[in-house]
Amino acid sequence: MKDILRPIYQERASQSNTLGVLMVEKRHKSSHTTDTFDVILLIIVKDGEQPLLIKHYTYNDNKAAMHIITEGLLKEWLLLGTNRKIFEWLYHAKILFDRNEYIANLKTELREFPFNGRKIKMGLEFAKLIRRYVDGKALFENKQFLDAYNYVVHSLHHLARLAVIENGLHPELTVWQQVKQIEPEIVKLYEELVNSEEPIEKRLELLFLASEFMIHSRTKVGCAHLLDVLGTKEYWTFNEIQNEEELIPYSVDLAVLIEYLNEKGLIDVVSLDTKGHGIFHRCYQVSKKLS
Protein backbone atom coordinates (compact mmCIF):
# COMPACT_ATOMS: atom_id res chain seq x y z
CA MET A 1 0.00 0.00 0.00
CA LYS A 2 2.84 2.38 0.90
CA ASP A 3 4.49 1.72 -2.49
CA ILE A 4 1.29 2.48 -4.40
CA LEU A 5 0.81 5.77 -2.56
CA ARG A 6 4.49 6.75 -2.65
CA PRO A 7 4.18 9.05 -5.72
CA ILE A 8 1.37 10.92 -3.95
CA TYR A 9 3.34 11.87 -0.85
CA GLN A 10 6.96 11.76 -2.09
CA GLU A 11 6.77 15.11 -3.86
CA ARG A 12 5.42 16.71 -0.65
CA ALA A 13 8.14 15.09 1.47
CA SER A 14 10.84 16.66 -0.73
CA GLN A 15 9.59 20.19 -0.04
CA SER A 16 11.40 22.15 2.69
CA ASN A 17 8.04 23.32 4.08
CA THR A 18 7.04 19.72 4.97
CA LEU A 19 7.65 18.71 8.59
CA GLY A 20 6.38 15.14 8.43
CA VAL A 21 4.35 12.54 6.54
CA LEU A 22 2.34 9.85 8.32
CA MET A 23 0.13 7.01 7.12
CA VAL A 24 -2.89 5.78 9.06
CA GLU A 25 -4.38 2.49 7.85
CA LYS A 26 -7.87 1.27 8.60
CA ARG A 27 -7.37 -1.37 11.28
CA HIS A 28 -10.62 -3.30 10.93
CA LYS A 29 -13.79 -3.17 8.85
CA SER A 30 -15.98 -1.33 11.37
CA SER A 31 -13.28 1.20 12.34
CA HIS A 32 -14.43 4.83 12.23
CA THR A 33 -10.97 6.30 12.82
CA THR A 34 -10.17 6.86 9.13
CA ASP A 35 -13.60 8.27 8.15
CA THR A 36 -14.45 5.15 6.02
CA PHE A 37 -11.18 5.45 4.05
CA ASP A 38 -8.73 2.55 3.80
CA VAL A 39 -5.80 4.86 4.45
CA ILE A 40 -5.17 8.46 5.51
CA LEU A 41 -1.99 10.24 4.48
CA LEU A 42 -1.35 13.00 7.02
CA ILE A 43 1.12 15.65 5.84
CA ILE A 44 2.15 18.36 8.31
CA VAL A 45 3.59 21.55 6.82
CA LYS A 46 5.13 24.63 8.43
CA ASP A 47 2.63 26.94 6.73
CA GLY A 48 0.32 26.95 3.71
CA GLU A 49 -2.11 29.01 1.66
CA GLN A 50 -4.92 27.31 3.55
CA PRO A 51 -4.73 25.60 6.97
CA LEU A 52 -6.27 22.36 5.69
CA LEU A 53 -6.22 20.83 2.21
CA ILE A 54 -7.86 17.42 1.64
CA LYS A 55 -7.61 15.28 -1.51
CA HIS A 56 -9.33 11.93 -2.16
CA TYR A 57 -7.91 9.07 -4.24
CA THR A 58 -8.98 5.65 -5.49
CA TYR A 59 -6.64 2.67 -6.08
CA ASN A 60 -7.31 -1.10 -6.44
CA ASP A 61 -10.92 -0.66 -5.22
CA ASN A 62 -9.61 1.15 -2.15
CA LYS A 63 -10.04 4.75 -1.00
CA ALA A 64 -7.32 7.04 0.31
CA ALA A 65 -7.45 10.60 1.66
CA MET A 66 -4.54 13.00 1.92
CA HIS A 67 -4.82 15.68 4.63
CA ILE A 68 -2.28 18.49 4.38
CA ILE A 69 -2.42 20.56 7.58
CA THR A 70 -0.36 23.46 8.82
CA GLU A 71 1.55 23.24 12.08
CA GLY A 72 -0.65 26.05 13.46
CA LEU A 73 -3.89 24.16 12.80
CA LEU A 74 -2.43 20.95 14.25
CA LYS A 75 -1.52 22.77 17.48
CA GLU A 76 -5.01 24.28 17.61
CA TRP A 77 -6.61 20.82 17.24
CA LEU A 78 -4.36 19.38 19.95
CA LEU A 79 -5.10 22.23 22.35
CA LEU A 80 -8.84 22.67 21.79
CA GLY A 81 -9.72 19.04 21.02
CA THR A 82 -11.80 20.15 18.03
CA ASN A 83 -10.59 17.17 15.96
CA ARG A 84 -10.32 14.25 18.36
CA LYS A 85 -9.33 11.81 15.63
CA ILE A 86 -5.99 13.57 15.30
CA PHE A 87 -4.84 11.96 18.55
CA GLU A 88 -5.56 8.44 17.25
CA TRP A 89 -3.96 9.28 13.91
CA LEU A 90 -0.76 10.44 15.61
CA TYR A 91 -0.71 7.47 18.01
CA HIS A 92 -1.25 4.74 15.41
CA ALA A 93 0.31 6.22 12.27
CA LYS A 94 3.39 4.90 10.51
CA ILE A 95 5.97 7.64 10.05
CA LEU A 96 6.94 7.84 6.37
CA PHE A 97 8.98 11.02 6.61
CA ASP A 98 10.17 13.00 9.62
CA ARG A 99 12.17 16.22 9.23
CA ASN A 100 14.57 16.75 12.14
CA GLU A 101 12.55 14.29 14.29
CA TYR A 102 9.59 16.69 14.37
CA ILE A 103 7.02 13.86 14.49
CA ALA A 104 9.02 11.79 16.98
CA ASN A 105 9.27 14.78 19.34
CA LEU A 106 5.58 15.55 18.90
CA LYS A 107 4.60 11.98 19.79
CA THR A 108 6.86 12.09 22.85
CA GLU A 109 5.23 15.32 23.99
CA LEU A 110 1.75 13.85 23.53
CA ARG A 111 2.72 10.74 25.47
CA GLU A 112 4.26 12.69 28.35
CA PHE A 113 1.52 15.39 28.28
CA PRO A 114 3.44 18.22 30.05
CA PHE A 115 1.72 19.68 33.11
CA ASN A 116 1.28 23.17 31.62
CA GLY A 117 -0.46 21.69 28.58
CA ARG A 118 -2.73 19.70 30.89
CA LYS A 119 -3.53 22.82 32.91
CA ILE A 120 -4.69 24.76 29.84
CA LYS A 121 -6.76 21.84 28.52
CA MET A 122 -8.37 21.33 31.95
CA GLY A 123 -9.27 25.03 31.99
CA LEU A 124 -10.90 24.86 28.55
CA GLU A 125 -12.79 21.69 29.42
CA PHE A 126 -13.91 23.12 32.78
CA ALA A 127 -15.20 26.26 31.02
CA LYS A 128 -17.29 24.12 28.64
CA LEU A 129 -18.53 22.06 31.59
CA ILE A 130 -19.68 25.16 33.50
CA ARG A 131 -21.39 26.62 30.42
CA ARG A 132 -23.40 23.42 29.79
CA TYR A 133 -24.18 22.95 33.48
CA VAL A 134 -25.37 26.56 34.03
CA ASP A 135 -27.44 26.63 30.82
CA GLY A 136 -28.90 23.20 31.58
CA LYS A 137 -29.91 24.23 35.09
CA ALA A 138 -31.60 27.38 33.77
CA LEU A 139 -33.59 25.29 31.28
CA PHE A 140 -34.51 22.85 34.05
CA GLU A 141 -35.79 25.67 36.28
CA ASN A 142 -37.91 26.87 33.33
CA LYS A 143 -39.31 23.31 33.01
CA GLN A 144 -37.71 22.79 29.58
CA PHE A 145 -36.78 19.27 30.58
CA LEU A 146 -35.82 17.77 27.20
CA ASP A 147 -33.52 20.69 26.37
CA ALA A 148 -32.08 20.55 29.90
CA TYR A 149 -31.45 16.81 29.41
CA ASN A 150 -29.43 17.52 26.27
CA TYR A 151 -27.25 20.08 28.08
CA VAL A 152 -26.70 17.75 31.02
CA VAL A 153 -25.51 14.93 28.74
CA HIS A 154 -22.97 17.36 27.26
CA SER A 155 -21.89 18.58 30.70
CA LEU A 156 -21.26 14.98 31.82
CA HIS A 157 -19.19 14.40 28.70
CA HIS A 158 -17.03 17.42 29.57
CA LEU A 159 -16.77 16.20 33.17
CA ALA A 160 -15.55 12.84 31.86
CA ARG A 161 -12.99 14.50 29.58
CA LEU A 162 -11.81 16.68 32.46
CA ALA A 163 -11.24 13.60 34.64
CA VAL A 164 -9.22 11.94 31.86
CA ILE A 165 -7.01 15.03 31.38
CA GLU A 166 -6.56 15.41 35.15
CA ASN A 167 -5.12 11.90 35.17
CA GLY A 168 -2.50 12.82 32.57
CA LEU A 169 -4.20 11.30 29.51
CA HIS A 170 -5.58 12.79 26.32
CA PRO A 171 -9.35 12.22 25.87
CA GLU A 172 -9.86 9.94 22.87
CA LEU A 173 -12.93 9.05 20.84
CA THR A 174 -13.73 6.32 23.40
CA VAL A 175 -13.73 8.72 26.35
CA TRP A 176 -16.32 6.73 28.34
CA GLN A 177 -14.14 3.64 28.10
CA GLN A 178 -11.23 5.70 29.41
CA VAL A 179 -13.15 7.28 32.29
CA LYS A 180 -14.62 3.92 33.35
CA GLN A 181 -11.11 2.90 34.44
CA ILE A 182 -10.32 6.26 36.04
CA GLU A 183 -13.50 7.49 37.71
CA PRO A 184 -16.44 5.05 37.45
CA GLU A 185 -18.65 7.41 39.51
CA ILE A 186 -19.00 9.69 36.45
CA VAL A 187 -20.00 6.74 34.27
CA LYS A 188 -22.56 5.74 36.93
CA LEU A 189 -24.06 9.25 36.83
CA TYR A 190 -24.32 9.06 33.04
CA GLU A 191 -25.93 5.61 33.13
CA GLU A 192 -28.44 6.72 35.76
CA LEU A 193 -29.43 9.69 33.62
CA VAL A 194 -29.80 7.63 30.45
CA ASN A 195 -31.15 4.30 31.78
CA SER A 196 -33.24 5.24 34.81
CA GLU A 197 -36.99 4.63 34.64
CA GLU A 198 -37.68 7.66 36.83
CA PRO A 199 -39.50 10.61 35.18
CA ILE A 200 -37.06 12.89 33.36
CA GLU A 201 -37.67 15.73 35.85
CA LYS A 202 -36.67 13.52 38.78
CA ARG A 203 -33.60 12.18 36.92
CA LEU A 204 -32.39 15.69 36.20
CA GLU A 205 -33.05 16.89 39.75
CA LEU A 206 -30.93 14.07 41.22
CA LEU A 207 -28.21 14.55 38.66
CA PHE A 208 -27.87 18.29 39.30
CA LEU A 209 -27.36 17.54 43.01
CA ALA A 210 -24.75 14.85 42.36
CA SER A 211 -22.86 16.69 39.61
CA GLU A 212 -22.73 19.90 41.68
CA PHE A 213 -20.52 18.10 44.19
CA MET A 214 -18.28 16.68 41.44
CA ILE A 215 -17.92 20.10 39.81
CA HIS A 216 -17.20 21.77 43.15
CA SER A 217 -14.43 19.27 43.92
CA ARG A 218 -12.76 20.10 40.58
CA THR A 219 -13.20 23.87 40.58
CA LYS A 220 -9.72 24.82 41.80
CA VAL A 221 -7.91 22.50 39.40
CA GLY A 222 -10.29 23.46 36.56
CA CYS A 223 -9.76 27.21 36.93
CA ALA A 224 -6.05 27.15 37.87
CA HIS A 225 -4.90 28.27 34.41
CA LEU A 226 -7.37 31.17 34.24
CA LEU A 227 -6.50 32.35 37.76
CA ASP A 228 -2.76 32.14 36.97
CA VAL A 229 -3.24 34.48 34.01
CA LEU A 230 -5.54 36.87 35.90
CA GLY A 231 -3.04 36.94 38.77
CA THR A 232 -0.50 38.73 36.56
CA LYS A 233 -2.42 42.03 36.91
CA GLU A 234 -4.21 43.78 39.77
CA TYR A 235 -7.55 43.82 37.92
CA TRP A 236 -8.94 43.33 34.39
CA THR A 237 -11.83 44.61 32.33
CA PHE A 238 -13.76 41.84 30.62
CA ASN A 239 -12.56 43.08 27.24
CA GLU A 240 -8.95 42.73 28.39
CA ILE A 241 -9.64 39.19 29.59
CA GLN A 242 -11.27 38.00 26.37
CA ASN A 243 -8.50 39.53 24.23
CA GLU A 244 -5.63 38.17 26.32
CA GLU A 245 -3.79 35.78 23.97
CA GLU A 246 -3.66 32.86 26.43
CA LEU A 247 -7.39 33.16 27.17
CA ILE A 248 -8.74 33.55 23.62
CA PRO A 249 -9.42 29.77 23.34
CA TYR A 250 -11.99 30.06 26.17
CA SER A 251 -14.13 32.00 23.70
CA VAL A 252 -17.90 32.10 24.34
CA ASP A 253 -17.62 30.17 27.62
CA LEU A 254 -15.53 32.86 29.30
CA ALA A 255 -18.27 35.19 30.61
CA VAL A 256 -20.21 32.34 32.25
CA LEU A 257 -17.02 30.94 33.79
CA ILE A 258 -16.04 34.35 35.25
CA GLU A 259 -19.50 34.75 36.81
CA TYR A 260 -19.41 31.22 38.21
CA LEU A 261 -16.01 31.83 39.83
CA ASN A 262 -17.27 35.13 41.23
CA GLU A 263 -20.20 33.29 42.84
CA LYS A 264 -17.77 30.74 44.30
CA GLY A 265 -15.57 33.48 45.78
CA LEU A 266 -12.53 32.80 43.58
CA ILE A 267 -12.85 36.02 41.57
CA ASP A 268 -13.78 39.43 43.03
CA VAL A 269 -15.55 42.26 41.25
CA VAL A 270 -13.82 45.66 41.29
CA SER A 271 -15.99 48.72 40.60
CA LEU A 272 -14.29 51.69 38.93
CA ASP A 273 -15.79 55.14 38.35
CA THR A 274 -17.09 56.13 34.92
CA LYS A 275 -18.10 59.56 33.62
CA GLY A 276 -21.71 58.67 34.33
CA HIS A 277 -23.10 59.33 37.81
CA GLY A 278 -23.92 56.12 39.70
CA ILE A 279 -22.61 53.74 37.03
CA PHE A 280 -19.30 51.90 37.33
CA HIS A 281 -16.95 49.82 35.21
CA ARG A 282 -17.16 46.19 36.31
CA CYS A 283 -13.63 44.76 36.54
CA TYR A 284 -12.31 41.47 37.86
CA GLN A 285 -9.42 40.29 40.01
CA VAL A 286 -8.31 37.06 41.64
CA SER A 287 -9.89 36.93 45.10
CA LYS A 288 -7.73 38.36 47.88
CA LYS A 289 -8.62 35.22 49.89
CA LEU A 290 -6.44 33.15 47.54
CA SER A 291 -3.30 35.30 47.96
Rank of each mutant, 00 (worst) to 15 (best):
H67I: 11
H67S: 11
I68L: 14
I69C: 08
E71F: 03
L74Q: 08
W77A: 06
L78V: 02
L79I: 00
L79V: 00
R84G: 06
E88G: 08
K94M: 10
I95K: 08
I95M: 04
I95Q: 02
L96W: 10
R99C: 05
E101R: 12
E101K: 11
I103H: 04
A104H: 14
N105G: 11
L106W: 08
K107W: 03
T108W: 09
L110W: 06
L110Q: 04
F113C: 03
F115W: 14
G117K: 14
K119Y: 07
I120S: 10
L124N: 07
L124S: 05
E125C: 08
R131T: 08
R132T: 06
D135G: 08
A138H: 08
A138G: 00
L139Q: 09
L139N: 05
L139T: 06
F140Y: 12
F140P: 00
E141F: 10
K143M: 10
L146M: 11
D147I: 07
N150Y: 11
Y151M: 13
V152K: 10
V152L: 15
V153T: 07
V153P: 00
V153E: 09
S155M: 12
H158I: 01
R161M: 10
L162I: 04
I165Y: 06
I165Q: 06
N167D: 09
G168N: 02
H170T: 06
P171N: 05
E172K: 04
E172P: 04
T174H: 13
T174I: 09
V175S: 09
E183R: 11
P184K: 07
E185R: 10
I186T: 04
I186M: 02
V187G: 02
L189M: 15
Y190C: 06
E192F: 12
E192Y: 13
L193I: 12
L193D: 10
N195Q: 15
S196H: 11
P199L: 09
I200R: 10
I200Q: 12
K202N: 14
R203H: 05
R203V: 06
R203Y: 09
E205Q: 12
L206G: 13
